[in-house]
Design a protein around this nucleic acid. Structure first.
Length: 354
DNA sequence: AAGGGTAGCAACCGCCTGTCA
DNA sequence: ATGACAGGCGGTTGCTACCCT
């Protein structure tokens, strides 16, 4: 509307407020009340624009501002409200006495968002990370697409796969990512990694992925074979597992798979469960994937994952109980752009072979 | 000890909406 | 109906303290 902004005002101070300016503003507002922000700085003798004064007051100087760390209870409220309201920070802050929208927003961006990502939850949709889940789905669908998927790829229950497959896929993705960084498309370099073959009732006889010369297709072959063994050893058509259930152990988040429609997750510190309904509009991705060539830029990037986490890229394949849950979560947390890859040596057939 | 990287957060920016003359 | 203004909102920027090598 052509309205003048703070930036238009020459001669007005910007940047951090001094204690002196704060005091002037406080004194003025206590005496005259707030409002009429445009004329306030002039009347108060401040070389600031009204907007800056208002923000300083509402976000910092207001006497009812609560300072200090957010409590676990506040965390929960924020997460829960965000799942319903989205980025309506003022609405969320209104439910948190003493907290400002700016503070809630900052806290979300710097803490909760990262925490959810580490837990494998999309912080925008509050659903499981589609990138990782769908990679796993893809892997398993490549394995079993010779027979109809009893649950349907787009159904409420996910495809059948080895509980470790997600981790394996993540490791593969990481290796692939590293490979790309090394500008060597033909050779995947997986350092110190193992894919355990599944035989009988347990993982055993680790299969060493060739650290320097193995092609990505070879890695995929190991992964898919491990999954195939696992599946055939554990499940028949009548005993299909429901992988979309939370097993109740907070340490198993990275190994469990959440229902896409309703799910629960726990606050890291106090174990209380927060439930939420998933956003329905994210199932569309599955339909797109089904029509695409496996592994060919199929993993659309969720809007929520615009930047990669600073993962250590210290990948792993199967820890099978070893290592901490935090490590699991950390290693499972990759952004979808890291999951875009190609299989350079061909495409998977029904058996997962190349 | 120094320098580079990173996280946290205050402050800014531009856009939008509501109100009023 | 229209335009100006006030205030609110969400996204982004930039500073600073802290951490790591």
């Amino acid at each position: 509307m052509g309205k003048s902004t703070c930036s238009d005002k020459n001669g007005l101070k910007k940047g951090p407020w001094t204690a002196e300016e704060d005091q002037i503003l406080i004194d003025y507002i206590l005496k005259h009340g707030h409002g009429r922000w445009r004329t306030l700085p002039k009347n108060a003798g401040l070389k600031r624009c009204g907007k800056s004064c208002r923000l300083r007051w509402t976000n910092y100087l207001r006497p009812d501002i609560k300072r200090g760390k957010f409590s676990p209870e506040e965390d929960e409220v924020i997460i829960q409200l965000h799942s319903v309201l989205g980025n309506k920070w003022s609405a969320i802050a209104a439910r948190l006495p003493g907290r400002t929208d700016n503070e809630v927003k900052n806290y979300w961006n710097t803490n909760i968002k990262k925490k959810l990502l580490r837990m494998g939850i999309d912080p925008v949709t509050h659903t499981p990370r589609l990138d990782l889940l769908e990679l796993s789905s893809l892997l398993s669908s490549s394995l079993y697409n010779s027979a109809p998927n009893p649950t349907g790829f787009t159904g409420s229950i996910g495809p059948m796969f080895n509980p470790n497959l997600l981790s394996i896929a993540t490791a593969f993705m990481s290796a692939q990512n590293k490979n790309m960084e090394d500008s060597n498309p033909e050779c995947i370099q997986v350092q110190n990694q193992q894919v355990e073959s599944y035989q009988g009732n347990q993982f055993q006889n680790p299969v060493q992925i060739c650290p320097t010369s193995s092609s990505s297709s070879t890695v995929m072959s190991h992964i898919l074979q491990a999954n195939s063994n696992y599946f055939s050893a554990n499940y028949s058509a009548n005993t299909l597992p429901n992988l979309w259930q939370l097993d109740g152990n907070v340490n198993n988040y990275s190994k469990s798979f959440f229902p896409m429609q309703n799910y629960a997750y726990r606050h890291e510190s106090n174990q209380s469960i927060i439930s939420s309904s998933a956003d329905q509009n994210h199932t569309c991705l599955n339909e797109n994937i089904l029509s695409l060539n496996p592994f060919g830029s199929i993993l659309s990037t969720p809007s929520s994952c615009s930047t990669p986490l600073n993962s250590s890229s210290n990948t792993y394949v199967n820890n099978n109980g070893a290592g901490s849950a935090a490590e699991d979560i950390e290693r499972d947390s990759y952004c979808s752009n890291m999951l875009m890859f190609e299989v350079p040596n061909g495409r998977l057939n029904v058996n997962g072979c190349l």
